[in-house]
Every structure is written in C-alpha cells, then in structure tokens.
Amino acid sequence: MITLSSDAGPTRVIAIIPARGGSKGVPGKNLKTVGGVSLIGRAVASAQAADRIDEVFVSTDDAAIASAARSAGAQVIDRPESLAGDESSSEAALLHALDQLDEQPGILVFIQATSPFIDPADLDSAVSRVLSGEADVVFA
C-alpha cells in the first residue's frame, strides 16, 4: 500500500492494537459494541481502511478478543499473561508484539481500541507526516 519509497524500498507500516481481556472497570470492554460493532472491530476496520497501513495486528491475551480481531481481518499476536495485568503497560505489549514479528516495520501505528471513532484519514495523515520527515512521532 505504501507508495513512497527510498533507496531501501517502501517503508513497511503496521498498526498494533493492544487489547487485553481483563478489564476490571468495564468487564469485556474491548468487545463492547458501538453502533453494533465491537470496539476491537472498529479499531481494526479503521486501520484497514487507512491507505498507508500495510498490516494490522492485535495483541491480546483473550480468546474472544482474538476471535473478534481475526474476524475483522487482523492478525493476532498472543500476549503472555505477564503482560496482561492491571499494571501492564501498553508500551510493554507493543514491544512484545514487535519482538514476535519476522520483519520489523519502518513505522508503528499504535491504536487504542477504546477510541471508537478513529478516522482512517487521520491515520494516513499521521503516517504521511512521519514518512515525509515532518515529524518523528505523531500523537492524537
């Protein structure tokens, strides 16, 4: 999908969506629906609709979330229990997910499943800003 290239070839852009199953505040949070679509399904759909994202991964410890993610078209990275507790950071989940990949991306897009209205155009814009060198990191 990426058309911008350098001497090294196209830049691989992936999205990782951390989605653990053990939410205590809102049990089953990542499978809750908004407009008939689960939060995890919405996040995957937004990432897949972005022209600049090549692959979408969901990092999870939960079989139901993994199933929903696969049904939505994402690849699943099984997160170990040690990275799925209340005190576990999203950053630790991202680093674990990156360690599981055969090929490292040039750009990582970190998407929170709990943001149900992610505009794919905003994802494309953020990736474009990094690819062009305008920004090293883009937060929203």
Rank of each mutant, 00 (worst) to 15 (best):
D86A: 12
L31F: 06
H96M: 06
A72H: 00
Q100S: 15
A45D: 10
G25M: 14
A69R: 02
L123N: 10
A121C: 00
L4P: 10
L94P: 01
A113H: 14
D102W: 12
I40C: 04
A113L: 04
S88C: 02
S6P: 03
F139R: 11
A121M: 11
I40G: 05
A121Q: 03
T11G: 02
P10R: 12
A47M: 10
K24P: 00
G36W: 04
K24M: 10
S89A: 12
V56A: 06
R42V: 14
D102G: 15
G133A: 07
I14H: 07
E87G: 08
F57P: 12
D7F: 12
V37S: 08
L101M: 06
G35M: 15
G73W: 03
T33W: 01
Q104T: 10
A74H: 04
G25T: 14
P120I: 12
D86T: 13
V37G: 05
G133M: 08
D102L: 15
P18R: 10
L83M: 02
D122S: 15
K29H: 04
G21F: 07
A8M: 07
G21T: 14
I111Q: 10
I17M: 02
D51G: 10
R12G: 06
V13W: 00
L83S: 06
T3D: 09
R12S: 15
S82V: 11
V13Q: 01
V76E: 03
G9T: 09
E55L: 11
S89W: 04
I118L: 11
F117P: 00
A74N: 09
D51Q: 04
A113N: 11
A93Y: 03
A50T: 07
G106W: 03
G73S: 08
G133H: 02
S88Y: 01
A74P: 10
V130L: 03
I40A: 04
I77Y: 05
D62T: 09
G106L: 08
A68P: 04
S59K: 08
P105T: 09
K29T: 06
V138C: 03
K32G: 04
E87L: 13
S71P: 01
S125G: 14
S23Y: 02
A93E: 14
Q112H: 09
I107N: 08
V58A: 03
L31M: 07
E103Q: 15
S46E: 01
D136M: 09
A97T: 15
P27H: 08
S38L: 02
V138N: 00
D124I: 06
A49N: 09
S23M: 00
E87T: 09
T114R: 06
T114S: 03
D122N: 14
L4M: 06
R12E: 14
S82L: 00
A74T: 13
Q100R: 15
E103C: 11
S88R: 02
V26E: 09
R79L: 15
S46G: 01
S90Q: 07
M1C: 13
A113E: 06
G85A: 11
V138D: 10
Q112D: 15
E103S: 11
